[in-house]
Amino acid sequence: DKAMLVREAFASPYGKALTAELGKSLRASADPACLTDKALTADQLEPRGRDIVITWGTRMLDGAFALIDRQTSDNPFASAAELESLKSSADVKRYLAMEAPMRQAKILDLIFEHFDRYNLISRVRLGAVSPLATGNEALLRLNPADATEEKLEEFAGKSRSKALKRFLQLSEQAGAAQAAS
């Protein structure tokens, strides 16, 4: 369920930081006369902007994954069933739980990069949010992806779980097959 993935990503600490940045951009960019006309206050902009990005971001993920799903159904990954069944292993579950902040950060970066790029190309007068676009180091440091990846490598390196080893092996193959298709 992409809507839930996106909502969870926005509820994460990095999601909240990006939302605050979006709020800053909206407050700096909104036309004051228009705000008066619409009886909108500056503090209404952030939650409403967040809802807009969540709605459009969910639509974007639905569209992108529909494309990927169509391609993988044409070229199914041979060990898909085994990969799926390994997800019930306790070690794999723990690994996937540890991985969640990284998955969420990737979703958030993807959404805001596309949002910023569209706004730039379409001349929407809204400052960019994505820390990569703006060079916002403080915000970039809040991205948990690198730290999570290190923790995962350490966890996988120390683990003696055969299920986890096989899961990682198949995940890599599935990823390569998906990229190829």
């Binding site: 909206l26 036309d31 228009c34 459009w56 974007m60 379409s122 929407v124």
Partner: peptide
């Protein structure tokens, strides 16, 4: 182009385009 049309929603928040 996943965000094509978002400017209409942003205009509701007084964000101008063009």
């Amino acid at each position: 182009t996943f965000f094509k049309g978002v400017e209409t929603d942003l205009a509701e928040l007084c964000i101008r385009s063009g």
